[in-house]
Amino acid sequence: MKIDHSLPLEYSTKQNDQNIFGFWVFLAAEIMLFATLFTSYFTLEHRVGNGPSGSEIFEITPVLIETLVLLTSSFTIGLGIHAMRIGKQKAMLTFFAITLVLGLGFLGFEIDEFITYIHEGATLQTSAFTAILMMTLGTHGAHVTFGLFWGAGIVMQIKKRGLTPETTNKSFIFSLYWHFLDVVWIFIFSFIYLKGMM
């Protein structure tokens, strides 16, 4: 394994460089996935059948808290990657842990939101609108859930193996994924919640 010390650790081998590039291509596919969900959402948005519409079930307060929690987690993982670049393993792990806790908090709010919807009679089977709403939110939520396990795995590996070309590469890729989920959430917040409440 040739290590090029002029580059940051996460880019230092050829395989690392390929991993990061490949992950960007994967994110392009993810953009298409969420774009399809959004397109379907806009198509089905007003097709509520006998069920409630968006303005009847959306509540701004929990959504705003969710948004702030997730945006903060994107900031803390950025700090984590910065700490990693300057070789401060302990600071990095702390920021990663904060990120994951915030992610968990976000997920808690989202689960609570789903339960509220179901109590209000907006279940997966109610109408085309509720189905696409829950599928879009659910796909994002599933990504966050997956990210929590992934991030926890990376924290464990760094504790065990330290900052190596492999572990830093994984952490950097994970940070790309986490930022991406944040971007998707901004679209969900703007075009599903705010648009729906207007």
Binding site: T43, G49, G51, A128, A131
Partner: peptide, 16 residues
């Protein structure tokens, strides 16, 4: 799971 994405009832849209 009985959702209504492409059905003809409850707002579903087969052309989607």
């Amino acid at each position: 799971f009985g959702t209504h994405f492409f059905t003809t009832t409850n707002g579903g849209m087969d052309m989607l």
